[in-house]
Design a protein around this nucleic acid. Sequence first.
DNA 1: CGGCCGCTTTACAACGTTGTATCAACGATG
DNA 2: CATCGTTGATACAACGTTGTAAAGCGGCCG
Lengths: 333, 333
Amino acid sequence: MATLKDVAALAGVSVKTVSNVVNGYAFVKPENRRRVEEALSATGYRPNLGARNLRRGRTGFVALVLPELVVPYFAELAGLVLGAAQEHEWNVLIEQTLGTREGERDTLASLGPHMIDGAIVSPEALQARDFGELAPGIPVVMLGEHSVDLPIDHVGIDNVEAARVAVAHLVGLGRTRIAAIGAHPHRGTAAQRLEGYRLALAEAGLPVRDELVATALNYHRRDGAEAMARLLTAAEPPDAVFCFNDLLAVGAVRAAAERGVRVPSDLAVVGFDNTEEGAYSLPSLTTVAPDKAAIARAAVDLLRRRVDDPERAPEHVRTPFSLEVRESTRGGA
Amino acid sequence: MATLKDVAALAGVSVKTVSNVVNGYAFVKPENRRRVEEALSATGYRPNLGARNLRRGRTGFVALVLPELVVPYFAELAGLVLGAAQEHEWNVLIEQTLGTREGERDTLASLGPHMIDGAIVSPEALQARDFGELAPGIPVVMLGEHSVDLPIDHVGIDNVEAARVAVAHLVGLGRTRIAAIGAHPHRGTAAQRLEGYRLALAEAGLPVRDELVATALNYHRRDGAEAMARLLTAAEPPDAVFCFNDLLAVGAVRAAAERGVRVPSDLAVVGFDNTEEGAYSLPSLTTVAPDKAAIARAAVDLLRRRVDDPERAPEHVRTPFSLEVRESTRGGA
DNA sequence: CGGCCGCTTTACAACGTTGTATCAACGATG
DNA sequence: CATCGTTGATACAACGTTGTAAAGCGGCCG
């Protein structure tokens, strides 16, 4: 592998002159520039980024820390972050937390100080809170959960309002026994969506029944199916359900179908995340659609600004969302 | 950020002694070891991986190059590769090709020689062929496509046989007008699955009808739906369809449903990849199930061995698969 | 007692790059 | 003609780490 030294020797100039050419320094004699460029392509020189970074103190890597890639929302988001990062000439290192905090702590602690310029973190459960101490000094942008008390940049939608809109839509269909799937003891977003759920019910003068609020410890299809199965055994089963993500909704739809409950006529279903899967499922899912591209872009932009100026005040960017109304709440009753 | 020098100063020993302690060198006087360890934790020392790697010539990074993370198969695979890589103390850098080769070439060419120890590549279209020249000298393991002529390590299932089994299953249900969705001019796997399809038909004494073989330029849900819509306009529409991945199958199922064609009674559907989505869709998808965990493990293992010994002969690892029979081919006419 | 060996530590160089200081050549200015 | 500023090139040091060679210090053996 050719180094600056090799190129310099071939071109008959000093190492620094080659470096200058490579970095576009203006004052190089045309003659020398030509010779260097020739030597560069002759040797197929590629700068050693490791060495360059060591010298410059930047690495060109950012970490994207998220729970699981198998969750389509995160996969879609990761894809968009990859794209956005590319425009900043950043390479993305993906770390899966899988819910466990220890492994996470280790990787980030060892990787943290030197190998990454910053991190975009989609926190699960408690992680948001103690992230500051976990990665001291690393520029971090947080996704999803909005913890105003933390002095950390943050991007996300208004979860309370989004949930309220979703449930209000169900109310507008005339449903009265509206269930929720996705309550979670430690997840900030879960608390916020539950809050929006309660708000919408209150606005409609409907009671909040505890037996209609189902907990989901993970947000996978299986959990949605199990929760729905439980809800359907109630004396008075729900006529609508708001699921805190699309996977839960997919599971819920299946559990309903397996028990002969028809969607949307017997049960209207709303999901969250607007994954492509939900748009193609049978029936297609009405869902809260966060602008994922905007989230990815905002996160990377925010991280860029934080890296450039570590002292700036933390910013909270609120990205837009919309409600995609599809078959799972259309027609029927 | 503390460096070896800082720690050495604090402990009153040389930089190298600290380095020795950090790296577990045996011959350090207990007294010194203790002092160094104290200084280490007092300063919260973290080795600068960039510097270490520059010195050692290894980076601890591997690239995972794949078409798109939004395709669930790749998301699931990526998750598994991340896990497998962790056991080798590798960090994974994910690159999306999005089908375009230029961007791909650039990233890998610049990243290639110095920042990654190797790459696991899931090639799309032509990429397999010219990958050797694209990333000269980088240890590479190829996924999916089996090009025996390339002197490159490779992991994958027997696509011809898998497709044959899938279509044979449809034949076994008594279907006679069996369509295929996913033919592609440049994709190696597409050619192989088509081959298996033809084989199974031939074995059953069924003709291969060109009008029943649908091309799909991408393997997204939309493409499956469009292809199915075309197939259903035929004079004699198919009574079964073998889709080259689950996304195509999901799209096909939806297109069928929108036209009142029932699955599986009117149309039996088989997918490929065994994504979770297919297991929960309505109806759930019969699908070819490659052992994804085995693929991920084999790929990382193979890469490890290649990195350790660049001269070894390329190996082709064939991972197992099975056919998951579900609702989309169960019961019905 | 001299030489050798094993343990322990250290100085030094090197990985490949870039910032800084320096120097030389040159034309312009007073 | 002396001085200055601009242009162009270079040597050197440094980023933080580790491999190498070597040296100091015992003790053991001949």
